[in-house]
Simulated assay, not measured.
Amino acid sequence: MDAADRLAAVQAGIRRACASAGRADAPLLVAVSKTFAADAIEPLIAAGQRHFGENRVQEAGAKWPALQTHTPGIVLHLVGQLQSNKAAEAIALFSVIHSVDRPSLVAALGKAQAATGKRPACYLQANIGDEAQKGGCALADLPALLDQARHAGLDIAGLMCVPPADIEPGPYFALLAEHAKRLGLAGLSMGMSSDYETAALLGSTVVRVGSALFGSRG
C-alpha cells in the first residue's frame, strides 16, 4: 500500500472502533514519524495528514522546520521522553508534549514557557504497568504531579500511557481512563499501531500510530 492507502486503512479502523463503541467523536490521529526522513513523511502530508509525532527534540529540529515551511498547518507532538535540559527547545518546536512525568521536568517546562510565551498542551505520562524500564509517573503520584504542573502554568490536556508489551492492553487503557476521570481530565493519549482500535473503543482522544502508517523501521 502507498501512504494514502495506509492512512485510509488506519482512519477506517478508527471509525470501526468508534462505531462499535457508539462514539460520535473520533480520536485525533498522530502519525509517529520518528526515524523517518522527509521523503517518507511527504507522501502522508500530501494525503492530508497534519499531526505528526517525534521522539527526540534534536531529530525533530533537524527535519521539521523545512517541512513546515512548505506545508502550513503541521502540528508537532513530542511523544518520547524529554530531558529537562531540552525543555526550552521542546517548547520552541512542539505544540503538544505527551511525556510530562516528573517534577523536575514540570519546573523546566514552566520556566521555558515563562521565557518564550509559548504554552503547548501537555499530557502527564503514567507508568501504567509499573515497569521500571519505562518513563512515566507512578499512578499514586499523579494527583501531586498535576497540582505541580498547574502551579507551574502548564496546560494539562490529559493523561498518556504506553501499556506493557505483549499483554492485552484493554485493562490498562481502562485504568488510565479511570484515573483521568478521577482527576477531571478529558484527554487520553493512548493507542499505537498494534492497539489503536482497542484504545478508540475505550475512549482514547489521541492515538499515536507509526508503523501502520510508515511501515517497519529498519
Rank of each mutant, 00 (worst) to 15 (best):
I128K: 00
R50P: 05
A12P: 13
G73S: 08
V57S: 13
I128P: 12
A40R: 15
G136R: 04
G61Q: 08
I45A: 00
Q68K: 13
A186D: 14
D130R: 14
A40E: 15
L67E: 09
A212V: 04
L142G: 07
K86V: 03
S95W: 10
R150L: 13
E197I: 02
N127V: 03
Q81D: 14
A212I: 02
L175I: 00
G117F: 07
S211R: 13
L201C: 09
G136C: 09
A140Q: 11
L7C: 07
D101A: 10
P120W: 08
N85E: 12
K181A: 14
G187T: 04
E42N: 02
L78K: 04
S33D: 14
G158N: 07
E131R: 06
S189A: 13
A88I: 12
Q68G: 14
V75E: 15
S189R: 00
F52R: 09
A174D: 14
D166P: 11
T35D: 12
D25I: 11
S193W: 09
R150Y: 09
D147W: 05
V106T: 07
A26E: 14
A88T: 08
A144C: 05
K86W: 06
M192E: 10
H151C: 15
V32S: 08
Q58G: 01
P143G: 01
G218V: 01
L29Y: 04
I74L: 14
E42W: 10
L213W: 03
P65H: 06
A46W: 03
G153S: 11
L142A: 05
S193F: 00
A152M: 08
A121L: 15
N55Q: 10
I128Q: 06
Y172Q: 03
P169N: 07
Q83D: 06
L7I: 02
K181M: 13
